[in-house]
Design a protein around this nucleic acid. Structure first.
Length: 449
RNA sequence: GGAGAGGUCGCCUAGUGGACUAUGGCGCCGCACUGGAAAUGCGGUUCGCGGCAACGCGUCGGGGGUUCGAAUCCCCCCCUCUCCGCCA
């Protein structure tokens, strides 16, 4: 269902290695193969019995039509034969259903193997592909600092973390967010809210006007089939908020509803590539991360994100990933935020991806790199789960498409990076140039008090 | 939430228990005709699973059931449309 039983049969070693490299249990591969072999045997037996029963049933119809009495002994004998086949069939079908469920369940738990050139290992194995921009220092002398009103005289200016900047300017209220929803649900107010809105609009405008994306405004809850399609179930089920009463899941990213747009569809080659850009709030329980990044808005349960989703022909997906990563990088350049691009190692890249780049911006206030985008190629992995196919040529057999997605970009951490990068010694904050038309102001003045 | 009408292989459509491959049309693919095209004619055209193959099996919104046999009869669910109620 995910890796594909055909590939599993052809190259079990590669799939096993892929699982090991990602830190998953490779024994599912052998279990799946064994169950699949049993499945095929049972299907063969079942099909043969069904074929027998079909001919038997037909002969009943023909006998009656030829003049035999429907209640006569001749027809009764034929009926007994057919019933007997049906009984045997029921036993086989019962086992078959069980085995099929086993195969499907096992296949859903086999991860997508990383591409061959992906470094094997954990965080230490990630490769920094490139960096851009000046990595601002946390402390710097006030001389030569931006702003004519900067006080002179050897003093050192210390960049403040974003939560301090935002709180002083009335942009973010974490305490009240905790009161009305819980910890990790920030409230954006005043220019904080306006900044969110400006970022969302600018991102979407760049994608639709410059990069050929179609804008999508999807539901922010999805059903089980959709959550399974993109691989959130069963792999990341405990990270999602669930609306149990209606059996719905709050989306952890727009990837889920948008990629599922074409679930169970056969696309024409002429429609590809399909490029969608969608803004949604994103909901994540962050189970297992309690106590991590508790200050500020670096790790929250609800944040906002514009997501890019691509449907590509298989031969085009590798180039498309590089292109899409470039689109996200361009946004960071125009925002004037220093960043680096990481090629993620096998254990860092998650269950469904074949290749993943993370974009991290430098936040001089907290002196950390913050992940603001993740651009991935899933190849045919999600497409198989969702049955998204295309016809390479008119009239040709359908083949699986390749799907990709990337953040463009995730807001909460971008806001943090902007506040820490663009703050000035007097407590005011400059607005990055691309956002000024959307905000209607060039900078946010320091608080009067 | 209540009442009713529907859901057939890309689109439209026939089909109320057994007929060979589930009709027919449009579209699409191939061939013929043509200098090339249009028009026309002939053939093909759901999707999936198993099989080296011949071929077999499944698939009529989804899931159960009745029957020797279900697109067709029964039950549950989903979706669409109409009306009523409620409502941003």
């Amino acid at each position: 269902m995910s890796v594909g039983i055909a590939r599993l049969r052809e190259e079990p070693d590669a799939i096993r290695k892929g699982a090991v490299d990602k830190g998953e249990d490779p024994s599912t591969v052998d279990a799946a193969l064994a169950a699949d072999a049993r499945r095929r045997t049972l299907q063969g037996e079942g099909d043969a019995l069904r074929a027998e029963r079909n001919t038997a049933s037909k002969s009943i119809g023909e006998a009656i039509k030829a003049g035999a009495r429907p209640e006569g002994p001749e027809v009764a004998a034929l009926r007994r034969r057919s019933t007997e086949i049906g009984d045997r069939l029921a036993a086989i079908d019962a086992e078959l259903a069980e085995v099929e469920a086993t195969v499907e369940d096992l296949l859903l738990r086999i991860p997508n193997p990383a591409e061959d050139d992906i470094p094997v290992g954990g965080e230490d194995a990630n490769v920094t592909v490139r960096t851009w921009g000046e990595q601002l220092p946390h402390d710097q002398p006030l001389e030569g600092e931006i702003g004519a009103d900067a006080p002179a005289g050897g003093a050192v200016w210390e960049r403040r973390p974003h939560w301090e900047v935002a709180e002083k300017l009335g942009m973010i209220d974490l305490a009240r967010g905790a009161k009305i929803a819980g910890s990790g649900f920030p409230v954006y107010m005043g220019q904080g809210s306006a900044l969110q809105r400006a970022l969302i609009m600018w991102f979407l405008d760049v994608h639709t006007r410059e990069n050929g994306f179609t804008e999508v405004w999807p539901p922010i809850v999805v059903n089980q089939a959709s959550a399974r399609g993109t691989g959130q179930i069963p792999d990341k089920e405990d990270q999602m908020y669930v609306v149990t009463r209606d059996d719905l899941y709050m989306v952890p990213t727009a990837e889920v509803p948008v990629t599922n747009l074409h679930r169970d569809e056969i696309l024409e080659a002429s429609e590809l590539p399909i490029r969608y850009a969608a803004y949604t709030p994103c909901f994540r329980r962050e189970a297992g991360a309690a106590g991590k990044d508790t200050r500020g808005i670096l790790r929250v349960h609800q944040f906002d994100k514009v997501e890019m989703v691509l449907f590509e022909r298989p031969e085009a997906s590798s180039d498309a990933l590089e292109w899409m990563t470039g689109v996200a990088e361009d946004l960071l350049k125009r925002l004037g935020l220093a960043y680096r691009v990481l090629l993620m190692a096998t254990k860092e890249m998650g269950f469904t991806q074949a290749r993943k780049y993370d974009l991290e911006v430098w936040a001089p206030g907290v002196e950390r790199w913050l992940e603001v985008s993740s651009c991935s190629n899933f190849k045919d992995f999600q497409a198989r789960r969702m049955a998204v196919r295309y016809r390479p040529e008119p009239g040709a057999k359908p083949e699986l498409v390749h799907t990709l997605n990337g953040s463009g970009l995730a807001l909460a951490r971008i806001v943090a990076a902007i506040l820490e990068t663009y703050q000035r010694p007097d407590g005011s904050v400059d607005i990055p140039p691309p956002l000024r038309p959307y905000m209607g102001i060039d900078w946010i003045p320091a608080p009067v008090a």
